[in-house]
Amino acid sequence: MKNFSIILKRFLLNKGSAFGGIFLLIIIIGAIFAPLIAPYNWNEVDTGPRLAPPSLDFLFGTDIHGRDVFSRIVYGARYSLSVGVISVLFGIVAGSIFGITIAYIGGRVDIIGSRIIDVMFGFPSFLLSLLVVAIIGVGLWNVVFAVGLASIPHFARIIRSAALQVKEQPYIEACVNMGFGKIRIMFNHILPNIFPIIIVIATMDLGGAIISIASLSFLGLGAQPPEPEWGAMLSSGREYMRYAPWTMIYPGLFLFLTVMSVNLLGDRLSIALDARQSVDKGKV
């Protein structure tokens, strides 16, 4: 607990991570309490004049159907955050299982597994997601799955190398000596020891996942109208960009700020967890 408070202190003392943390907190609260915060129904057409500029009634203006952009962004936070988190979760769980397994079993399994990762690295991950969407079809959850799938090789490679290091530790040898089975050693002993790394890479990847999903939605492959996903909102605002820029600016701004906050947080998280080790070493 002492360590936790030190990490928290490190976070708050850093302007970047403090900003990121506070902004994300606002977004998360907004997403949870969306019905209380949003002034209008996100899907109700003609709540005001079409393409009205921002005003006191419509903070971020209205879109072509006269829907309140602010309300849509508040509800959209639910999509953007949850799809990002879910796709990263999917990627990291699969990547961890794959990475730890090939690292621990080693030998031929490791060689073949590593080559599979290399081959998948050959494709740009965005292209890989496109490919998956092309196969399984259009839709928000398909995109989430595709982005998660495309991130597996990246996660697996980092986790494999971390697991290789832990595998060499004497306490793993001690486990073998106790007569523990492979599965127990891999997931009860190696996994907890690389958990900090997993958290850091997952956080660092979250921003990218949110962007990728929004991009695919922007291309029309993900969330379908009228869902207020930010990428989809950007896409539908594109046509009116000239005379109603607010239909694009605000979803874009929130996407940008959210991703930046996540990245700032991730950066700081890796430093904080690293720094803790150096403090421990510094003890004389």
Partner: peptide, 27 residues
Amino acid sequence: QMIFQDPFASLNPRKNILDTLIEPILV
């Protein structure tokens, strides 16, 4: 059984002592 040289590295840092000791008995 074996007693290891490095008492720092031969204990799983993420397990408390009870967990470390009870696991082999239960397994």
